[in-house]
């Protein structure tokens, strides 16, 4: 791990030192540090999801020239607290025809899969839970698993709307996962490493959004589809499918899906900021503040998309993915390869 001066890294080291001094057992100190990391990630994810639910409603309101929630607390910031508490108090309906275990497991799995992706996100220099040497590959592999819980939910609900929604998830994820990976490949080719900290370090002088603009556009479009957000929210498509795979879930089970959706939005924004916007690099301010600003900008971009574009048809979605995004991302790889061969022939 590299030398760094930010407070989060120091905090982790301090705790490790403290436990080591108190108990004299190195493994306990490491365990304490790991637990702190896990608790920190959970806190960040839950807080971000709660804030985003509120922000989404506010941004939507501003785009439609409304005021948005403003009754609870200043500017209505406690709105999502009330929503979460209310969802806790709702009755837990378990329809008679659902296939029990699968149905109950799906929301929990969905949330877990999304949380696991946070392990490889570098919030600041040295502040990364696991700096794997296949970091970005790990992220892609794990985030693709969100397909399974949605399909489980759709199928085990035994409801025609949810089944169609679950099937659409699979079709959509498969067609958009490939352009997503190919767009990331351009960045990996330039860096020569899949390690997250190496990718960020390579952007010290110039961000990859400048050298890989096409890859950035493909990534943002594919990530929008991955997070099931409008204009690609065919999985939920209220006007056709009621609520897609979530139709039969009430109360907290539904809230799990809701939170997981926003957590995956944050994860995608973090990855976009890391790969293309230079991660924690930036002048004057501490690294984690820069990272926070970049992630906020990405999240706002996704929200902007959602409240600007109408939902597209499912055949348009598939055609766009396979006939436009995929060739574009492949062409990007070829151009990147030729460029590397021309300018850095020895490396």
């Amino acid at each position: 791990m590299q030398q760094s001066t930010n407070i989060w890294f120091e905090l982790g080291q301090l705790l490790k030192q403290l436990v080591l001094e108190l108990t004299g057992m190195p493994w306990l100190a490491s365990l304490a540090q790991t637990l702190l990391g896990i608790v920190g990630i959970f806190a960040v994810v839950m807080l971000a999801a709660l804030i985003l639910v509120y922000l989404e409603r506010k941004v939507c309101a501003w785009m439609q020239m409304r005021v948005g929630p403003n009754r609870l607390g200043p500017f209505g910031i406690f709105q999502s607290v009330a929503d979460a508490l209310k969802l806790l108090t709702k009755e837990d309906i378990r329809p008679a025809q659902v296939s029990g275990k699968m149905w109950a497991l799906a929301p929990v799995l969905m949330f877990m899969v999304v949380i696991i992706t946070y392990a490889v996100i570098p919030f600041d220099a040295g502040v990364i839970f696991a700096d794997l040497n296949i970091g970005i590959f790990f992220f892609v592999a794990v985030s693709a698993q969100t397909t399974l819980p949605l399909l489980m939910a759709g199928w085990s609900s035994n409801n025609k709307y949810s089944l169609v929604g679950g099937m659409r998830t699979v079709a959509q994820m498969i067609s958009y996962e490939i352009p997503l990976v190919f767009s990331i490949l351009g960045v990996v080719m330039i860096t020569g490493s899949m390690k997250m900290s190496d990718i960020v370090k390579a952007q010290e002088s110039i961000w990859f959004i400048v050298t890989q603009p096409v890859a950035f556009v493909v990534f943002v479009i594919a990530a929008t589809a991955e997070c099931n957000r409008a204009p690609f929210d065919l999985v939920e498509a209220e006007s056709e499918l009621v609520a897609g795979p979530f139709v039969e879930y009430s109360g907290m089970r539904f809230a799990y899906f809701f939170l997981a959706e926003y957590a995956s939005l944050v994860a995608s924004s973090c990855i976009a900021a890391t790969l293309f916007l230079g991660g924690w690099h930036g002048p004057w301010l501490p690294g984690w503040i820069w990272f926070f600003l970049k992630v906020s900008a990405m999240i706002f971009l996704f929200m902007w998309f959602r409240w600007t574009f109408p939902r597209i048809r499912v055949d348009q979605l598939m055609a766009f993915g396979w006939k436009f995004l995929l060739p574009l991302s492949v062409a990007n790889i070829i151009v990147t390869g030729v460029g590397l061969w021309l300018f850095f022939p020895l490396s």
Partner: peptide
């Protein structure tokens, strides 16, 4: 703007 009171989430 029903949203001011937090009641705008029309669920299908």
């Amino acid at each position: 703007d029903l949203a001011r009171f937090g009641y705008e989430v029309f669920r299908p």
